[in-house]
């Protein structure tokens, strides 16, 4: 092993309270009671279909925020 001892490197971590945000796009799309209905419709799509498509935005937002916050914290 040629790795320098870990104490020589700046302490790093991927811990952040912002990580909890990632739970939102995991829990909500799996909560079927939220969307298992026909009404209200949007552009002819039953709720079941358009709302689940809309959840994509949740996922993108949460991962983007966690990524950007992490970048600022590590000072880059």
């Amino acid at each position: 092993m040629t790795t320098p001892p870990s104490d020589q490197r700046p302490a790093r971590s991927d811990r952040s309270p912002w990580n909890w945000l990632l739970l939102v796009p995991i829990v909500i799309p799996l909560t079927t009671v939220l969307y298992n209905a026909q009404e209200p419709r949007l552009f002819g799509f039953p709720l079941f279909y358009w709302l689940q498509l809309a959840f994509i935005v949740l996922g993108v937002t949460a991962t983007t925020v966690v990524y950007q916050v992490g970048r600022k914290r590590s000072g880059r």
Partner: peptide
């Protein structure tokens, strides 16, 4: 059959870290 959509939404926040 539409399970494929929530499946591919959930996966990225789930495996991000």
């Amino acid at each position: 059959g539409f399970f494929a959509l929530p499946y591919t939404i959930v996966v990225y926040p789930l495996v991000f870290l």
